[in-house]
Amino acid sequence: MNAEGLVEIVLPGKVEPEGLRIRHGDVPVPGTGQVLIRMEATGISFAEQQMRRGRYYDQPEFPFVPGYDLVGTVLATGEGVDPGLAGTRVAALLKVGGWASHVLVEAADVVPVPDGIGAAEAETLVVNGVTAWRMLHRTARVRAGQTVVVLGANGGVGSVLVQLARAAGAKVIGTASARHHAVLRGQGVVPVDHRTEDVAARIRELAPGGVDAVFDHVGGRGIVDSWHLLAPGGTLVSYGSASTRDDEGSGQWPVLKLLGRVWLWNALPNGRRAYFFNLWAGRSLAKKRFRARLRADLTQVFAALQRGDVTARIAAQLPLSQIAEAMRLAESGTVAGKVVLNP
Rank of each mutant, 00 (worst) to 15 (best):
G84T: 05
G84E: 11
G84L: 06
G84Y: 06
L85T: 06
L85V: 13
A86P: 07
A86N: 11
G87A: 12
G87Y: 11
G87R: 09
T88A: 12
T88I: 07
T88D: 11
T88F: 05
T88V: 14
R89K: 14
R89I: 14
V90I: 15
V90Q: 12
A91E: 03
A92L: 06
A92F: 08
A92T: 11
L93W: 08
L93D: 01
L93E: 12
L93P: 11
L93K: 08
L94R: 05
L94A: 03
K95T: 04
V96H: 01
V96S: 00
V96M: 04
V96Y: 02
G97L: 09
G97D: 02
G97R: 02
G97F: 00
G98P: 00
G98F: 00
G98N: 00
W99M: 00
W99Y: 10
W99K: 00
A100C: 02
A100P: 10
A100L: 01
A100K: 06
S101V: 08
S101G: 15
H102W: 06
H102Q: 08
H102K: 11
H102Y: 13
V103I: 11
V103F: 08
V103T: 09
V103Y: 05
V103G: 02
V103D: 10
L104V: 08
L104R: 05
V105Y: 02
V105A: 02
V105M: 04
V105G: 05
A107K: 13
A107R: 12
A107L: 13
A107V: 14
A107D: 14
A108Q: 15
A108R: 15
D109A: 15
D109C: 06
V110Q: 09
V111P: 03
V111N: 04
P112S: 05
P112Q: 10
V113E: 07
V113H: 07
V113S: 12
V113M: 04
V113L: 11
